[in-house]
Design a protein around this nucleic acid. Structure first.
Lengths: 344, 344
DNA sequence: GTTAGCACTCATTCCCAAAGAGTGCTAACA
DNA sequence: TGTTAGCACTCTTTGGGAATGAGTGCTAAC
């Protein structure tokens, strides 16, 4: 059996209709819905074929058909067209350019949730290169030292270090100089054990301080730099009966969103061939997050320049409005691009 | 009509039972449940009285009674006894003393949610005194300056400032000195406009940098220092039909928790007479958060010493297990106390 | 003051019939 | 050979009682 044009049209019609209503769709509906001028009987024949081919499913005898994962996949792959939707509002928010990146991300994800009525998430951009720019030690008081670690892309990390006895201003200055001459411009890999031992030796009595600073540096530089995930619109999950009527599962989903557990998994798999659009669609069990088998996920990676990359994601039911979602994400990407360009 | 001992016993029995089952409770049940040895008919008489007095409500004729807000209030006020429950697990987590306060708070709130099966929240402790300890300016690169602002309690804020033209190391040192001699130890109120103008004049060509630093200082010092709220167990809301069967409302609740909107309101009202326990109970519409009229909220303030104060809250249905919740919060408070003492 | 008894009220449950949606198959048609 | 009309059949959904049962209020007796 082959997929011919008419079958494709019918499949498309079925999916479209199902996306709107969430109800199984019957042959009669399609007969009227499309402009093929075919009777319901003919449609029925075709539908039987489509079912045999695995694109649609009958929940029970004498119900209409609903798309299978394979059906959705076909739809997404072949029929999706980029609609440049207007999302003026979004751009406006982006352009307002909150000085705190964090707030901007929260704004974006919230707006996106309101616009699409799905659950959304965004990860903070991670600097691609992970180089140390400089370190600044300062005395806070007798017992505490503050280490400020600045990375490429002006990402900053603070750490308070307890010191057993007071250090003189002079000592602090010396340590500062030492650390910066040795470590500036280094990446994690380049900081060798030998170097660390050398530093400690130089520091003499204050080697324990150095050890703590090095720890902080390691923490700041490596460790996925605590990838932050912001979410919004979790409550939208309740709007789709197929996700919420099993309250066990709904609870698990909500929890996943609240605790952010496993969401990185959605976002970290860049492995697919996204054809340069930066947009990826996972249907049903195509995503590997536990409890999300009944959801579809659309993700887009964005760039803010300087190797700052992050991911935006939308999670909804399988009968998601793929057209709209993909369109929105595309505009959003370009919006973020513009933002960066304006800024430079 | 007066509240005598027997009425109180019956009311208590009704509430206890309702907390367990979530179903309206009838006279027959109470007759067997209590050790008063009264027949159901007598109980019915008493219940009629209690209803007249406003402590209980009949959802419809020929249903059992459920407690009214007033009934819960009576229960909470008079019958609650401190049970020192064992929460070894919690203490253990606390004692592990994660170096990052943030992680600790997240851990606590999560554990609390798992233990109680309600939705929970915690606010980051805010330093009571809001004094400036010192300011540190450093050059990041040609165009950027980093301002590190350290407050009492070693709370740190960073701000990257763009500068039109490069500043020499010397200038930065001078600005540093200037800022610190003038501003160290100040509170928000003490920094007058005159002082700011004076600083700007001293800075000469670099007065715009000073302006930005002052802005950052103001932001750091005032503005409730971005009170952070962490939540957990939002999905527990779905476990209580009286909250979740109206999916509109459930969605709103979940949204409130996700966006943290209005949760500050729960937490900021210290105005009540908490008799030194630091624990407060809001029943039904006693709390002022929109959409939370059907919930009860129990909050406890905790202290980490040095004027660092925060609030823990538990949100659940009105038929919350008040005994358990209050007990848990009490232990938790003392746990946090211990943690602080150990540390000093 | 307490209790037994009884009539009465409602929400809930269950069952069954009717309706309705949709299918698969067959036979007729162009 | 593809399309269509028609029909029997299958299942789900809906709606309406009837039965159930929990619980009350009231009255009369103890």
């Amino acid at each position: 059996m082959e997929m011919d044009e008419r079958k494709a049209t019918i499949l498309q019609a079925i999916i479209r209709n199902y996306l709107e209503t969430g109800e199984p769709v019957g042959s009669r509906t399609i007969s009227k819905y499309t402009d093929l001028n075919l009777s319901s009987a003919t449609i029925r024949n075709e539908m039987a074929d489509l079912e045999e081919m695995g694109y649609i499913i009958q929940p029970h005898t004498s119900a209409g058909r609903i798309p299978s994962d394979k059906g959705y996949r076909f739809y997404v792959d072949t029929m999706m067209e980029a609609k440049d939707r207007e999302i003026e509002e979004m751009k406006k928010v982006l352009v307002e350019r909150q000085d705190r990146l964090e707030d901007m991300l929260k704004g974006v994800v919230k707006l996106l949730a309101r616009d699409t009525q799905y659950a959304t998430l965004i990860t903070s951009p991670s600097a691609g290169r992970n180089k140390l720019k400089f370190i600044q030690l300062s005395r806070i008081d007798e017992e505490h030292l503050l280490a400020v670690i600045v990375k490429e892309g002006n990402v900053i990390k603070n750490k308070v270090i307890e010191v057993p006895e007071p250090l003189s201003e002079e000592t602090v200055l010396k340590l500062n100089l030492m650390l910066n001459t040795q470590l500036s411009g280094m990446t994690m890999d380049e900081i060798s054990l030998g170097m660390i031992t050398g530093l400690k030796a130089q520091a003499g009595a204050h080697s324990d301080v150095i050890a703590e600073v090095i720890d902080a540096v390691a923490e700041a530089i490596s460790a996925g730099e605590d990838l932050k995930v912001y979410t919004s619109g979790t409550n939208n999950i309740l709007k789709y009966p197929e996700l919420s009527d099993n309250s066990e599962r709904a609870g698990q989903l909500i929890n996943t969103f609240e605790e952010k557990e496993g969401l990185e998994a959605l976002v970290s798999t860049e492995l697919s061939e996204d054809a340069g659009t930066g947009i990826q669609v996972y249907i049903g069990s195509e995503n590997k997050v536990e409890g999300m088998e009944d959801c579809s996920v659309v993700t887009a990676t964005y760039e803010l320049g300087g190797g700052m990359k992050g991911t935006i994601g939308i999670v909804g039911p399988k009968r998601m409005d793929y057209d709209k979602v993909v369109g929105t994400l595309k505009s959003l990407r370009s919006g973020l691009d513009d933002l960066y360009k304006e800024k430079t």
